[in-house]
Amino acid sequence: MRQIKACKLPFLLFILTLCAVEARAQAPEIVPESIQIGLSTDRVTITSDFSGADLTIFGALDNADPMVARQGRYDVIVVLEGPARPVVVRKKTRVLGMWINTQSETFVNVPMSYSVATTRARQDITNTANYKQLALGAENVNITPYDRNGDPVTLEEFSNALRERKKASGLFSERIGGVQFLSQNLFRATLHLAPNVPVGTHRARAFLFKNGVFIKENSAQLAILKAGFEQRVYRAAQNHGFLYGIAAVLLAFVTGWLGRIIFRRD
């Protein structure tokens, strides 16, 4: 181990010097690449016929090296992260032959949804260590346990279960090839909004990689709201629960009475 390191070091230094020399020779003031994204709208409204949707995000690379772009060695990952809320994960175990919730762990800042679009399969873009460092991808997104001093094995188990359940409900999703380059520096990302997408402020983040190295990140906000009627119903239920209940009962009386008149069969 030590030996390998020893031989590698001079070699690395040599390469670095070479690169530096080369860079200085080519362009004295090289500007690093950066990434921009733009949403066609900063709000998505959920109307009564909403049953999931595709969200398109356009973006561009600045100062892209045409050479690298031509070889397809720029990669982009776009993430749409839902608002964070606390979540309780419960585990059922068998008690007296019945499956009963017995254990639970609370996590405080779980993104309610997390959908990812990539240019290629994730393992082809960069390595796991980089993903972990960037907290990128459903398995790396930060979720903090409420009880920080809990048993790490249990916390690991429950946080994995949380991610797995979120994936199963379609709220954590990944679309390989969801980001496509339209030209050398223009790309389009298509992300899926699940039918049960949480309302609130979502954050779209775009990550740029070059030859497997993370270069730059940029983000934009997106509000997902219930449309007028749905929002009013929700507000009424939350703020005027009693009156809302009376209205629900009156509606039931009228429907029952009308149904009797319209569909009378005796």
Binding site: V233, A237, G241, G245, A248, L251, I262, F263
Partner: peptide
């Protein structure tokens, strides 16, 4: 029960209830 749940738990979905009612009374 509906009013109590609506006041205490805000769990009455009036849109869902209405669809069920229409199907139900018919």
């Amino acid at each position: 029960t509906t009013i109590v749940h609506s006041t205490a738990n805000q769990t009455v979905d009036i849109v869902l209830a209405f669809l069920l009612m229409v199907g139900g009374v018919a």
